[in-house]
Design a protein around this nucleic acid. Structure first.
Lengths: 249, 249
DNA sequence: TTTTCACATTGACATAGATCAAGTGAACAG
DNA sequence: CTGTTCACTTGATCTATGTCAATGTGAAAA
């Protein structure tokens, strides 16, 4: 009896969360950032039908792995993810970080398997789009395809830019560029451009930027000593965005 | 009179070349590699109508520049191109090389301007697809859109892999990976996988792989000393593909 | 043919960033 | 509360690759 009453609020909470997850695309706060933009109301309802709003992922939980058969596109709903690929001898490269409204797994849609793996960086949730259904719907809604094309193209452009960073920038330029890129993405999502939480570890950042953890740590301290940023563990404040921009190369 | 007879064969040659350039998609030798794959015969004719088979580009001639307004997708018909992006302070990164049947400029289709620039590496020709027309046609032919999506996704996957190269591989692993990647692409085009011409300069290769020209030069000599490859200027022969593969990391 | 010029190679030396090693502090299990 | 662990920082050293300088080479120009 007392046990039942203890559990009751938890059940209600769960139901409420469940309900929140069932929110329709047209009501989703990510509307502006996610796929639907450019779709008509009727189209949206169709899209809505194929979207599976999946449960939560805990930190370090895998969304998909490199060898797994590709079937589903994912959009981050809340939280964040990282993607990685590996050499045959086990070295890994963090290929990207993904925030709410961003697609994960786009590079796989022409292949039988995801080639990279994706892992949650914190408690996160996603929308899953079975790609077969997306394709079928795409036959009816050319706008949906166009939107997908735009998404892919945008990610491609980002990656080309990232090649410039990996190939030609110094450690300081790399970190400055990275922090400002995060800043812009948070701002776009309605968060502060000046202060945010790094949900990824220093070593994830280092790996992504093609540097050693120690180097990242040193550059963080240098930036702090120079008054460019302030860090308190995972929280970063950008004190002088303009000077940071000048540092990007 | 004698002048006329001298010019006559040239005119005929030109006409013939002109005609070759007008070859329809369905008869093009790149059919298998290019966009049309998966399109029906009727669809092909529609696609054919919007394709502009453009004249030749000489080595070093620009296909588009970073600031130029985006309007057209390009497919290499013959020859080869490189694409580059630059930092504000003028450093450049070669982001890719493009061979017959490959799309150039996909990363721009969501933007007002090409963000990168493309330059011919040798005498080359292209098919130009005005993107507005592609979009319009895409409304009627969902398969066309799907094909484009596949193209983009493929390039994206390639770029993610390239991040692994830039971020985590040694100079030797980089060059070995690069040579084998070229080899596969040439083989796919019906050329020898073992012997081919490097249409790009050593310094283009170095830049692309995030290395100095001198390093590339040294690794080439090392590979040659080790009996892995033979080079004669721009011509490379891969003598021991398996050992090269083992070197890729 | 000779000249030229961009490209390529080779050697000597410099350095950004990696690696190794040690220490700190916060989170977490027992 | 205490020990263990993991993420992060800091310092000392090492090294892969960059930079600088000189020389070689082959194709186009003269």
């Amino acid at each position: 009896m007392s046990q039942t009453s203890n559990i009751q609020p938890l059940i209600e909470d769960l139901a409420k969360r469940e309900q929140e997850q069932q929110i329709a695309c047209e009501d989703c706060s990510l509307y502006r950032l996610c796929l639907p933009l450019g779709l008509h109301r009727d189209d949206l309802l169709l899209l809505d039908e194929i979207v599976m709003r999946s449960g939560n992922y805990q930190a370090k939980q895998s969304l998909f792995t490199a060898t797994e058969a590709f079937s589903t596109l994912f959009v981050v709903r809340s939280g964040s993810f990282k993607t990685m690929i590996s050499t045959s001898n086990g070295r890994e490269q963090v290929t990207g970080f993904y925030f709410p409204g961003e697609f994960v797994g786009l590079e796989a849609l022409h292949m039988p398997s995801y080639q990279s793996s994706a892992v949650a960086l914190e408690t996160s949730s996603i929308c899953a789009l079975p790609y077969q259904k997306v394709q079928a719907l795409g036959e009816k809604l050319p706008r949906l395809q166009s939107q997908l094309l735009n998404r892919l193209s945008k990610e491609l452009a980002g990656d080309k830019n990232f090649m410039l960073l990996l190939g030609k920038k110094t450690s300081e330029e790399k970190l400055a560029t990275y922090l400002l890129s995060l800043s812009k993405r948070f701002e776009l999502r309605g968060f502060s451009a000046k202060q945010f939480v790094l949900t990824m570890s220093r070593s994830d950042i280092a790996n992504h930027l093609g540097l050693a953890v120690e180097t990242i740590s040193r550059v963080f301290t240098k930036f702090q000593d120079d008054g460019l940023i302030k860090t308190e563990g995972k929280v970063v404040s950008l004190a002088e965005i303009e000077r940071l921009q000048a540092l990007c190369g």
